[in-house]
């Protein structure tokens, strides 16, 4: 009996250590910094495009008027600043401020504060058009911005860092528990997204009979590159259909082991690039690839991004002439 108790407590202790290690190990904030920069750019572009139809999409008498949205969102605990500020001049003031905030997040000026403000504002835009004109891009934009708030997203690749360097603080950005926490949450959220992307497809006949990719690429409204030549080689579409389900369904398992992670990353990047190029969803494809950067190690990120960051720092007259060595 004592043996059972000891092995149980020992197992539970190991589990707690593994949990601690998974969530509370400090990590280099390089990955989070790059995700901040790219998500900021996506937020800026996504919302810049709203400029073309600000009143039409967000105004009281637009495509989605207040009474229709009140019925569609009934029972939801939603909040949008645009439910209260609907005069065109006020819409534009908020919009310009929002664009400035998204730009600041992209360049990393007052990064953490900007992440909070960017999330609140991006949420206001998307809630005003949900349901009605939202899609996957908005979900991932919001998801990434939410997790950026949790960690030191401006510790690298940011104006904040440049300002510290100019002030003579050349110390490396320290590893951070909260950078790890933010990255872990992005990773697990992605696993849920792909798992249910795959499970949802299992309910559809076309994902089973291999015709789903055909019906996606032959759809005129989505098409940005004519892929209907695969009518001559239907096996290509069928293989792509099955591969899509397979990759999405097993992402949550295959993305963790060291052996399969690079392959699964390549597979999902290929899948999203394919969707971006052939189905005209460049923004959605890019934001999914940005989210998947959460599975790339800070060392790899630094190997590619540090030289660019160092060059920009030199151009702006700050910091070292060479990138700082990576801490091992």
């Amino acid at each position: 009996m004592i043996g059972v108790w000891r092995s149980t407590t020992s197992h539970l202790r190991e589990m707690w250590e593994a949990w601690n290690d998974f969530w509370f190990s400090p990590t280099d904030p390089a990955t989070l910094g790059l995700i901040r920069c790219l998500t900021g750019a996506m937020l800026f572009y996504t919302h810049l495009v709203w400029s073309k139809g600000l009143s039409a999409f967000l105004g009281a008498d637009g495509w989605l008027p207040n009474d229709l949205m009140a019925a569609k969102q009934n029972g939801r605990y939603f909040f949008s600043i645009f439910d209260y500020a609907q005069a065109p001049w006020l819409l534009w003031i908020i919009h310009v401020v929002a664009l400035a905030i998204f730009f600041c997040l992209m360049i990393g000026l007052f990064s953490r504060t900007m992440a909070v403000l960017a999330w609140l504002l991006a949420l206001s835009y998307v809630v005003r058009v949900t349901p009605g004109a939202f899609f996957g891009l908005d979900k991932i934009n919001l998801m990434l911005t939410m997790y950026l708030m949790l960690g030191p997203c401006g510790a690298r690749y940011s104006v904040d860092r440049l300002r510290r360097m100019r002030a003579g603080d050349d110390d490396e950005a320290p590893p951070s528990i909260f950078a790890n926490l933010a990255i872990r949450l992005i990773q697990l959220h992605l696993c849920v997204i792909y798992l249910f992307g795959g499970l949802g497809k299992l309910m559809g006949e076309k994902w089973w009979n291999g015709t789903a990719v055909w019906f996606s690429v032959a759809n005129v409204e989505y098409r940005s590159l004519d892929m209907t030549w695969i009518a001559n080689y239907l096996w290509i579409g069928e293989l792509a259909t099955h591969a899509t389900v397979f990759v999405e369904l097993f992402y949550c398992c295959a993305i963790w082991p060291r052996l399969t992670r690079p392959w699964w990353l390549l597979a999902v990047i290929g899948m999203h690039l394919g969707i971006a190029l052939t189905m005209g969803m460049m923004t959605f494809g890019l934001i999914m690839i940005i989210a998947n950067l959460a599975f790339v190690s800070p060392e790899t990120i630094r190997r590619f991004v540090d030289p660019i960051a160092a060059r920009i720092a030199r151009m702006l007259g700050a910091g070292r002439t060479e990138p700082a060595p990576m801490k091992k």
Partner: peptide
Amino acid sequence: GYHFFAPDPVVN
């Protein structure tokens, strides 16, 4: 739901 293009691709 994250049911992108599911259960079947949309007909626009």
